[in-house]
Amino acid sequence: MFGKKSTKPQIDKDQLELIENAQKRIKQKKRLYVHFVIFLIGAIFLIVANTVLGIGKDLTFFGKEWFLYAILIWLFLFVYHVFNVFITNKFMGKAWEQQQLEKLVAKQQNRIEKLKEGFLKEETLIAKTEAFKETNIKNSNLTIIVAAAENNAIGKGNQLIWHLSDDLKRFKALTSEHHIIMGRKTFESFPKPLPNRTHVVITRQTNYNAPSGVIVVNNLKDAIDAAKTDKQPFIIGGGEIYKQALTFASKIELTRVHHNFEADTFFPEIDETIWKETANIFHTKDADHDYEFSFITYERK
């Protein structure tokens, strides 16, 4: 019909490749045929040149006329041409290369799949282990116990800044018969391990030499896992351990010292959108206490 363009037949990529390969093979065979014809004509010419025209008649090698060697060399080149077209191209041509490539890719893919299976198994095991630890952490009823000033100061030079007798008594009463988790510097600030408590010390040092009965771990999660048999393990310091523990703790037992102090270690600010105050007992200054303080209990909302 007028106004309509004729549609061209579509040839997909594979068909086009087959056509191109076929055209290439036809050209190769044509060149081989031409080579064969030229070889026959050339061989006849060499024989005529020597026997009829007398060209190089007296030239011989090992008792044979030179043209015989020329024909043999040319024959060798022709045989090589035949071999290249019909043998090499068939077994080492593009199709052969593609086949070998596919085999190598299949082997590599199989290896990758095996590696993936191994990684998936390992990742699953790690995930289960981490999930188990997270569950233990969440169900640990972890309690932070700390004495902090109004400006959140808790220590200087790895030592307490104040001495409050009732605070020490409260610390002893709450933590006795429990696991107490602490950093290495906090542990080393004690003259000796505290009685009636299981010490869990967190340190990055390898082969840390701790007294018998002291549990040494490398991170807070492992420390909490080490105290999983305790219904209420306590975090007792220092500053970095407190900061990490706020993510997991369910309770804070805080002694708030109503004074500001110079310090090099501080307790993190308590976020009252996460924590609610459930108890507050105020103590005034007296002969045994140089500062006013309050025992405050926070529980996670």
Rank of each mutant, 00 (worst) to 15 (best):
F36D: 07
L68M: 12
R25L: 14
I71S: 00
Y33W: 12
T60P: 04
T51Y: 09
R25M: 10
F67H: 15
G42M: 07
I71F: 02
I71C: 02
L32A: 06
G42L: 07
N84D: 10
I41V: 12
A70S: 05
L40K: 00
A70G: 11
T88C: 04
Q23D: 14
I87T: 05
A49Q: 06
N21T: 07
G54F: 11
V37D: 03
F45S: 15
V85C: 08
K64C: 03
I38N: 11
I47M: 05
G54D: 06
F86S: 01
I38G: 03
Y69C: 02
L46S: 05
A43S: 13
V34A: 08
L75N: 12
V52H: 08
I38C: 08
W66N: 00
L75K: 11
Y80M: 13
Y33Q: 13
L53T: 11
R25V: 13
I26E: 15
K27F: 00
N84K: 15
F78M: 08
I47N: 08
Q28H: 09
T60K: 10
T88H: 08
F61M: 03
G42S: 10
A43F: 03
D58A: 15
I47P: 02
G63W: 06
I44T: 11
V52G: 07
Q23A: 06
F39Y: 13
H35P: 00
L32W: 04
Q23C: 10
L72R: 03
R31H: 14
V52M: 12
K64P: 01
